[in-house]
């Protein structure tokens, strides 16, 4: 149960730089009426950022000079997970099927 003032400073700094981008837009939209074009742009953010986060998960980040790689077990399991999601429209079912299938793939490999 120990820490240093250096660590406390670090955690406080990281807390500040994380909370500002989270909260600022909520304060901004109260005083500024967002233009229609910006609202239209924002309507595309969910689909685009979810896609980007999925692709980020399916890739293995390059480390010390190596090239970017595909996480094949993930890609293999992503396809049936997509089908389950489309069929059941259930988040829970998709997550459970995905996790179980990945465990099976790892066990089989």
């Amino acid at each position: 149960m120990t820490t240093t003032s250096w660590m406390l400073g670090l955690i406080a700094g990281c807390c500040a730089v994380t909370i500002v981008p989270r909260v600022l837009p909520f304060l901004l939209v109260r005083s500024v009426k967002l233009p229609a074009a910006l609202l239209r742009w924002l309507s595309f953010i969910p689909v685009c950022i979810l896609t980007a986060l999925i692709v980020q998960g399916l890739l293995i980040q390059p480390e010390n000079g190596r090239r970017i790689a595909v996480n094949w077990p993930y890609v293999l399991v992503a396809a049936p997970t997509l089908l389950v999601a489309a069929k059941t429209k259930s988040l829970s079912a998709s997550v459970i099927v995905g996790v179980v299938l990945l465990a099976i793939v790892r066990w089989a490999m």
């Binding site: 689909v47 979810l50 997509l82 389950v84 429209k89 998709s94 997550v95 995905g98 996790v99 465990a103």
Partner: peptide, 18 residues
């Protein structure tokens, strides 16, 4: 256990629902 895939699976399902 394959639990590390939970997040990606959820993003996939959220995209489908979206």
């Amino acid at each position: 256990l394959g639990l590390d895939f939970a997040l990606v699976a959820m993003f996939i399902a959220l995209l489908v629902l979206q």
